[in-house]
């Protein structure tokens, strides 16, 4: 089962770091080499992915629409569900990227006796949006380790996130939200037999890696404390290309390894939907193929046509022999 494979992989990550740093003391490898290599793989991999996708021709307008397209003037059309021009495409895209509009349309199908019933099901949307925004906030918050002086907006974000002053260091709201959302997204896959059937290891692995990342982070902040000043000296060293592996607990290295693994895995997994969404021809095109003649596919070559005059030239003798009229226009000099 995919979930078991993914779980074993993630536990193996923890073991590798525990043995590598905790037992063998390879702090330079896990603290410097792995993060830099992972970031490089992430950066080059994503750029490669984008260029690769951009090379693929999209000869047809294959927009997924779910509304009335632009038609006759008196027919009411849906600008967002069937965008007609680039402006409407951009609007639709913004809502898709920031509000996950297509997930909001998610339906649930259930057999009630002999009847197949469809119903609204917003939980996936809620779980997804909570997860993504929490993750993004956590990412922004981590800029406090990569900037000095820390910009005021990042500090404010940090303080708002720890608004409730629970514990010391304060518990972040986003940590709670992301754990809850991840748990939901994981259980959702397990709970529904249909979904469980179509879920692969590559669906569970990103979930578990992010789980590992979040849990190691929370453990590090609240339970197995590390000297955060040393951690920041290390992260600042990373961005100044003068890194020095910090002398802190293994939990920090586990956290670092999870983010490195996630970065390296990013361009080659479903996580690449981060840039993929912009390359989806079902979303980034205007549904105007009835109004606009679009460029044909690049491999389409204009066929060699034979005009009537050329044909008449080829069969002129036969045409005259059989008494067919000759088109004199072909011989008129223009």
């Amino acid at each position: 089962m995919g979930a078991v494979f993914a779980l074993v992989t993630v536990l193996a990550f923890v073991m590798v770091v525990y043995l590598g740093v905790g037992v063998a003391g390879l702090k330079g490898l896990f603290g410097i080499v792995v993060p830099y290599a992972a970031f490089l793989v992430f950066l080059l991999g994503m750029v490669y992915r984008m260029i690769d996708w951009a090379k693929i021709p999209v000869p047809f307008r294959i927009v997924t629409t779910c509304g009335q397209q632009k038609s006759l003037r008196w027919i009411k059309r849906s600008r967002l569900e069937s965008p007609y021009n680039n402006f409407e495409v951009v609007l639709r895209m913004i809502l898709e990227v920031f509000a996950f509009r297509s997930l909001f349309r998610n339906l649930k199908a259930e057999l009630k006796g002999p009847n197949l019933i469809y119903g609204s099901y917003k939980w996936l949307w809620l779980g997804a949006i909570a997860f993504h925004y929490a993750f993004f906030t956590i990412l922004l918050r981590h800029l406090r380790f990569f900037t000095y002086p820390v910009p005021e907006p990042i500090q404010i974000l940090d303080q708002v996130d720890s608004f409730f002053h629970i514990g010391l260091p304060h518990l972040y709201m986003t940590d709670v939200v992301i754990l809850a959302a991840l748990t939901f997204l994981f259980l959702r896959r397990l709970a529904d037999p249909k979904l469980r059937y179509i879920s692969l290891a590559s669906d569970y692995l990103p979930l578990f890696m992010i789980y590992g990342l979040v849990i190691s982070g929370i453990l590090m902040r609240h339970f197995f404390k590390v000297d955060v000043t040393q951690v920041k000296e290390f992260t600042m060293g990373l961005v100044h290309f003068k890194p020095k592996a910090p002398d802190v607990g293994v939990i920090f290295y586990i956290h670092l390894f999870f983010i490195s693994a996630l970065m390296a895995y990013f361009p080659f997994s479903k996580l690449v939907h981060m840039v993929g969404v912009f390359f989806s021809p079902t979303r980034n095109l205007a549904n105007n193929s009835r109004a606009v003649r679009h460029e044909p596919a690049p491999w389409w070559k204009k066929p060699k046509f034979k005009t009537y005059c050329e044909w008449q030239e080829d069969f002129k003798e036969q045409l005259i022999e059989s008494g067919q009229p000759i088109d004199e226009d072909c011989y008129k000099k223009k």
Binding site: F42, L43, L143, F146, M236, V239
Partner: peptide
């Protein structure tokens, strides 16, 4: 966007 920490520092 992803190299913010590098070029801001």
């Amino acid at each position: 966007f992803v190299t913010v920490p590098f070029w801001t520092n």
